[in-house]
């Protein structure tokens, strides 16, 4: 799993490349932006080729922690494989999902502004 982190409009964009499963979850959780509950993050999932229940759990867990601090985790650019996992499990209901990272960043910045 390759994790890249950039910042746009004060929002961290974390791009995942590879498989998000039980093996790579600790690495994902250890990412500073993902692990920091006070940081709003846009997660770019375009290059995630597989996600299992542990990966899903890491994303849900990170989002829950962030929401406790009035921050959030937004999902962007899901490919069909990942989207189907979110849909089957009904996890899609927990997230705002965008097909474009830029739009997700704009929305996240707006939400963050509204919270202040």
């Amino acid at each position: 799993m390759i994790i890249t982190e950039t910042t746009q409009n004060g929002i961290s964009v974390v791009t995942l490349n590879g498989t998000l499963d039980a093996l790579s979850c600790p690495e994902f959780r250890a990412n500073p932006a993902v692990g920091d509950p006070g940081q709003t993050v846009v997660l770019d999932l375009e290059k995630v080729d597989f996600i299992d229940s542990s990966g899903l759990g890491s994303i849900v867990g990170a989002a829950r922690k962030k929401r406790q601090q009035e921050c959030d985790l937004f999902l962007a650019c899901m490919n069909d494989k990942v989207r189907k996992v979110f849909e089957i499990t009904n996890a899609q209901k927990l997230f705002h999902i965008f097909d474009d990272t830029g739009a997700a960043v704009e929305f996240a910045a707006m939400q963050q502004e509204a919270c202040k």
């Binding site: 229940s53 542990s54 899903l56 759990g57 849900v60 867990g61 829950r64 499990t89 009904n90």
Partner: peptide, 20 residues
Amino acid sequence: AEEWPGCGKSEDASIVERFH
């Protein structure tokens, strides 16, 4: 069966259950 995600919310538990 899963250490998942430990928030104790039934909504979250049902996500992993649906996955399996």
